[in-house]
Amino acid sequence: MVFAVCLALLALSAAGVRAGKMTEGQACDPSRNRLDSQTYNFLSDCDPQTWCGPDNICIKRGCRRDIYPYGYYGTPYDQLPPLCPEGQFCPDEGSSCMPKSPVGGPCQKDRDDQCAPPPNQKELASYLNVNGSTCLGFQCYYADVETGKPCIFENTWYVGTADDGTTFTYAVSRDNCRKNLYCDGTTQLCNPKRDKGQGCTANKECKSFNCVKPRADEAGICGREADEPLKPKPWVYVVIGLAIVICLVAVMTGLWLLHRRAREENQVKLQEYYNEQIAYRQSIMSMSHAKNSLLSLPANTTPNAARASLYSEQDSMGLSTANGLLPPNMRRETSQAWSDDSEVLTDQQRQGNSMRFRGQF
C-alpha cells in the first residue's frame, strides 16, 4: 500500500514537472489547458512559444497579444509571432488570429478585447472595460446598463501577500453598467458611484475604485485614485523654500570660512618664505661686503687684522674689542629700505676699515 502511494506521488510530481515544458513537436494533452488558480494566466503542457494543437502535439504559436510576449527572451523582434489586425484577437493559446465575438458570443476569462465594440464605444469606454465591451462569465456584453436597471456582475478572487509575509484574499468586481455606475450585489441594479470621502463597502462603489478601510471593523471611505497626483498644502512649499534657502546660506558660509582659513594659512607660509629669503639675501650681502673689505686691505696687513670680524673694532694692538657693529635689522618693507640698510652697512664698514687702518699706523 505504501509502495503504491509512493508511485502515485512520483507520477504526480513527474506530471507537474512535465507541465509547460513540452517544445514544438512533442506530445501534449489539451485537457490539461487551464487557468492558474492565483493569477488566472493560461497554462498548458507546452512551453510559452507553442500551443497544444488538435493532434495532441505542441505547435508553434501563430499570433501574440502583447508587443513583447512572455517566453521569447533573446528572440529577434522580426521573428516574433505577428500581432492581430483590427477586428481580430489572439486567444490565450496563441493559435491564430480570430474575429472578435459579438454581444452574447464566447470570450475567455477577463478578455474584454475579444468582444466586438459597440457603435457608441467612446461613450461607454472606461478603465473597467475595453472599448465599451466587457467579458463576464465567458460571455460578451456591452457596458451600457442605465441607473436602476438590472445588471450582471462577476467577482474574481485573488490572493495577495502582505509585508509581513501573510496572505490575504481580495475580490475584483466587474459588471456591465455604464460609466460611473456599479452593479449592487444585493439588488443587482446599477447605482451611481460615490465621490471621494463618501462611505463605501467595496472598491467598485467608488469613482476612484479605491475603498479605504482604516480598520477591518470600520466602514470604508472612498479614497483617491491610484494615479491621482499629490497636492501639498501651501505651508509645505514655504517650509521647503526656507529649507532650500537655509541650505544655500549654510553652504556658502561654510565655503567662505574654509576659504578664509586657507588664505590665512597661505599668508603665514608666504610670510615665513619671504623672511627666509630676506635673511638669505642679508647673509649674501654681508659676505660680499666682507670679501670686498679683505681685498681692499693694504699689502702689509697683519694676519690678525685680516682675520678680524667685519662687525668688531680693533684696538691699537690689532685685537678685537667687544664693541662691534651690529648687523642691520632684517625686515621686508620696500626696496628703499634695503638700499638704506646697504648704505648704513657700507658706512659702518668704512668706519671699521678706517679704524683698522688707524690701528696699523
Rank of each mutant, 00 (worst) to 15 (best):
V2F: 07
A4Y: 04
V5L: 10
L12T: 10
A15I: 00
V17E: 09
G25K: 10
C28K: 00
D29H: 02
S31A: 00
S31R: 00
N33F: 00
R34S: 08
R34L: 00
D36C: 05
S44V: 01
D55Y: 01
D55F: 01
I57A: 14
I57L: 15
C58Y: 01
R61P: 01
C63R: 04
Y72D: 02
Y73S: 09
P76S: 05
P76M: 07
Y77L: 14
Y77M: 15
Y77H: 12
P81G: 06
Q88I: 10
D92H: 13
D92G: 12
E93P: 01
S95Q: 04
P99N: 09
G104C: 06
G104Q: 03
C107P: 01
D110E: 06
N120H: 04
A125P: 04
S126T: 14
Y127P: 00
N131S: 02
S133G: 00
T134Q: 02
C135E: 01
C135Q: 04
Y142R: 03
E146T: 03
K149W: 00
P150S: 02
C151G: 05
I152V: 08
E154I: 06
N155H: 08
W157C: 07
Y158S: 01
D164S: 10
D164N: 11
T166F: 02
T167L: 12
S173F: 06
R174C: 05
N176G: 03
N176A: 11
C177M: 07
R178A: 09
R178K: 09
N180A: 09
C183F: 14
D195L: 13
A202K: 15
N203S: 11
K204H: 14
C206V: 06
C211L: 00
K213R: 13
P214V: 03
P214F: 02
R215H: 08
E218L: 09
E218Q: 10
C222Q: 03
R224F: 07
E228K: 07
K231M: 09
P232E: 04
K233Y: 02
P234Q: 07
V239Q: 05
A243N: 03
I244H: 07
I244C: 12
V245K: 05
V249L: 14
T253A: 15
T253D: 09
W256C: 06
L257V: 13
L258A: 11
H259I: 11
R260P: 10
R261T: 09
R263D: 13
E265A: 15
N266S: 11
V268C: 08
Y273G: 12
E276T: 11
E276G: 06
Q277D: 07
Q282C: 13
M285F: 03
A290C: 14
K291E: 12
P298H: 04
N304T: 08
S312T: 08
Q314L: 11
G318Q: 02
S320K: 11
N323S: 05
G324P: 06
P327R: 05
P327H: 07
T334M: 02
S342R: 13
S342H: 13
E343R: 10
L345A: 14
D347G: 15
Q351D: 13
Q351I: 14
N353L: 08
F357R: 15
R358C: 08
R358S: 07
